[in-house]
Nucleic acid binder design. Sequence first.
DNA 1: AAGCGAGTGTAGCAGTCGCTACATATCAGA
DNA 2: TCTGATATGTAGCGACTGCTACACTCGCTT
Lengths: 186, 186
Amino acid sequence: MADAPKKPPMTKDSLLPLLTAHVLAHGLGGASLRPLAKAAGTSDRMLIYHFGTKEALIVDLLGYIAKVYAAAIDAAMGGERAATRADVVARILAHGDAPAMQPFMRLWWEIVAGAARDLPGYQMAAQAMMGELLGWLEGQMPENDPDPAGGARYLMTMIEGTLMLSAVGHSDTALQGLLAGGLLPS
Amino acid sequence: MADAPKKPPMTKDSLLPLLTAHVLAHGLGGASLRPLAKAAGTSDRMLIYHFGTKEALIVDLLGYIAKVYAAAIDAAMGGERAATRADVVARILAHGDAPAMQPFMRLWWEIVAGAARDLPGYQMAAQAMMGELLGWLEGQMPENDPDPAGGARYLMTMIEGTLMLSAVGHSDTALQGLLAGGLLPS
DNA sequence: AAGCGAGTGTAGCAGTCGCTACATATCAGA
DNA sequence: TCTGATATGTAGCGACTGCTACACTCGCTT
């Protein structure tokens, strides 16, 4: 007869990916325990059992999301260095514009808003993700760049500004700004 | 005898400033009708009566906030033109860092997050505010600037990137980026 | 075999949510 | 004076919130 469907033990580590998928789809602010539990195949009862509190769950979840983001950055890092600063910008903006990244982008702005309000865990997760991105940028700077460290931070600021303006429907403004700054190829 | 405290008629226009004060203090996402009503000296019942729906109330409120922001920008616009692009940046960042602006900044990131999620009214309010800021920036560009239109958009992108990085505790990154871009005086 | 702690389902608590039904009160125009 | 629209308070609905109490089944050690 069919072997009993031996359920693997439920742990934080097995729950966090499922919870992440749910918040990517439905947002972080409006996430409540019962829908989260359903997405993870459990009950709110068990989420509280494993995390203790909804707040602790969110903090853990943000930390996990930051790690997922770091892994995604690492995976995208492979390619050879860019030849110019404009190429760096083009590469990263293409990455951010990819449809697969859009749920994450929507989530990102919620994290920024939470960080601005000092909600627990938000600042740390946001800082970790920005730190990861900065490291990636530094590694991508052209070899002959006169100031790789400062240049990476300069590009980072421009990129984040571009992403923000795009999020509110001012992507043309950002593109013209990049153009005026000599950061668009062609 | 004392004249009866003739209460002025309650209208949307009389409610919106009070509602604005409440969301500036307590945030937009977690705003629910009953606290909003108490802040405005009414009942949830009357908010629904005047606005029809909570969603309509939020849309109206966002439009009003955008107009308030535009008025604040106009009021701050007075001064003479800046001498350099760095001066423009310094002036506007000082404006954004002012303590009086911090509640608005916290609200701003919530508006961005809402716009990224296509919540009704958020995109429009955010676009209006960014358009107003862009107009102000264009008027502030140095007289001898070789490309005032493009330069304003360039500065706008850098400024918004700086504000975002500051919101998540990476203000040092942004400042070094501004420095590397030649946008910090001294 | 006895007992123990981890894990889990069911039921439910007290509270808040957006919103509505109903009863008035006020005031203008007919 | 009647009529109708505007305005306001009270009570409450059903859904949902985070969280807990209780009972139960396991796999394990003693």
